[in-house]
Design a protein around this nucleic acid. Structure first.
Length: 424
RNA sequence: GUGGCCGUAGCUCAGUUCGGUAGAGCCCCGCGUUGUGGUCGCGGUUGUCGCGGGUUCAAAUCCCGUCGGUCACCCCA
């Protein structure tokens, strides 16, 4: 294919119907469930002051290397949001809604990454956050909302991985133990892991490079270093999941890339995707974030789910197909086109999805369009019908053939006989 | 960011090994019925062979660069 003059920038893509309808339906399904669980939508700007994201961790790659940062004409330092939790917490700090505050969101995010299947520079997430409580039941509610959503869209091959990362009272000691252990074995680590070790020892546990595995397997575990309080919290969360019969796997090496996470962290892996991009969602507790963004100390927990990746997983499982938005009626007008305008408008005003042909094409050509549109009915109008004030109503999918009816009875007739799109 | 693979009509792809100047199926358009789709038959349109440069009498085919996609690492949704 010859390269067009312009194309969507690298790592971005156009989504056309029906896939776009499918994406919209997925988000609508999430919205319905979030609202049903007491969450209200929060809509934040697509760009923020750069500092909002810098606070989420200099050691975080998405902050240090992947941000679309820029200056506006007044020299303000801004960035396209690389994730949404920081924006939501910033909004919380700015507006101080009563707690516990439950918010859900959806929208695009931007990271300057090397694109791959399921990895885009602009991608869409849906998510939810609860701020103002560190009750383990909040963690459970958050996880359950995500889990039940996967169920609702028909994804069955999803694994929930759980871990606790400790908190500021116990993590430093663990980090020290881990760091000294890794330093002892650093000669056997890959070069990349040695570099990571200096920036964030925790992240070394994430390495998938084979030479590192043996060392990582024998590394000290966070689970053994949790304070009683943090361990009890985690225990309460897992018990809560069990009470709801939500299956999970403990994953002591689950680290996650955002530095603000502490205590509960979790990730959802789509087992139907065999690529490395199988994480279709993740989240955790970020009790220190509100304070870092200049607000009062406020615990928080939330998750974000990748819309594009969920849809890839749905493809792999044959789940959540695009909704059928075909017109119910296609108007075929061989008198010039004005009657099609009038009839389609009338049908649409009554909530009937209607399409029509253009360019005064032959009846044969318009019938072909009618068929391809997926419409259940064709409404035909020619010179004879026009003269007599009638239309011909033709059943395109069933065996009702065609009849001539009074033009003024058309709407009533169609409303009385719902379309049977796609049905034989 | 590092490394591998791929890039031919709107779509899926053949042709690239051993250079000779572009093909199939689908889609689309028309006709078979000057008022009727889906099946069938007949006919037809469509390509700077991703882009740029080089080698050659000659390049889709070989070489270099570049852009885009993809896979692994990385990162993560």
């Amino acid at each position: 294919m010859a390269t067009p003059l312009f194309q969507a920038p690298k790592g971005t893509r156009d989504v056309l119907a029906p896939e776009s309808e499918r994406q919209r339906a997925l988000i609508a399904c999430f919205a319905e469930r979030a609202i049903g669980a007491g969450f209200g939508q929060v809509v934040t700007p697509i760009f923020e002051e750069l500092g909002v994201f810098e606070r989420i961790g200099e050691a975080t790659e998405l902050v240090s290397k992947e941000m679309y940062a820029f200056e506006d004409k007044d020299g303000r330092r801004l960035a396209l949001r690389p994730e949404l939790t920081a924006s939501v917490v910033r909004a919380f700090v700015q507006h101080r809604p009563p707690t516990p505050w439950r918010a859900w969101y959806e929208g695009p995010q931007f990271r300057y990454e090397k694109p791959q299947a399921g990895r885009y520079r602009q991608f869409t997430q849906v998510g939810a956050e609860i701020l103002g409580t560190d009750d383990p039941h909040a963690d459970v509610e958050i996880i359950a909302l995500a889990w039940r959503f996967y169920e609702a869209i028909g994804l069955t091959r999803v694994s929930l991985l759980m871990n606790s990362l400790g908190d500021p009272t116990c993590r430093p000691a663990y980090l020290e133990a881990l760091s000294s252990y890794l330093h002892e074995r650093s000669a056997d680590l890959t070069e990349q892991s040695r570099a990571t070790l200096e920036v964030n020892p925790l992240r070394v546990l994430d390495s998938k490079r084979p030479p590192d595995q043996e060392i990582i397997d024998a590394a000290p575990s966070m689970a053994d270093h949790l304070t009683d309080e943090v361990a009890a919290h985690f225990e309460a969360v897992t018990q809560g999941l069990e009470a709801l019969a939500i299956p999970y796997r403990l994953s002591p090496r689950l680290v996650r890339g955002l530095d603000y996470y502490q205590r509960t962290t979790f990730e959802f892996a789509a087992d139907a995707l065999d690529s490395a991009q199988n994480a279709i969602g993740g989240g955790g507790r970020y009790d220190g974030l509100a304070e870092q963004l200049g607000g009062p100390p406020t615990p928080g927990v939330g998750f974000a789910l990748g819309v594009e990746r969920m849809l890839l997983a749905c493809d792999a499982e044959g789940a959540f197909t695009a909704p059928d938005n075909s017109p119910q009626v296609f108007v075929v007008d061989v008198t010039g086109g004005a009657e099609a305008s009038a009839l389609a408008d009338q049908l649409r005003q009554h909530g009937i999805r209607a399409d029509r042909g253009f360019d005064q094409r032959s009846m044969k050509a318009q019938m072909k369009l009618a068929d391809r549109s997926g419409a259940a009915w064709a409404v035909l109008i020619g010179d004879e019908e026009l003269a007599q004030g009638v239309v011909t109503l033709r059943d395109l999918r069933g065996d009702q053939g065609q009849t001539t009816i009074e033009r003024r009875a058309l709407v009533e007739r169609l409303l009385a006989r719902p379309a049977t799109n796609g049905e034989p």
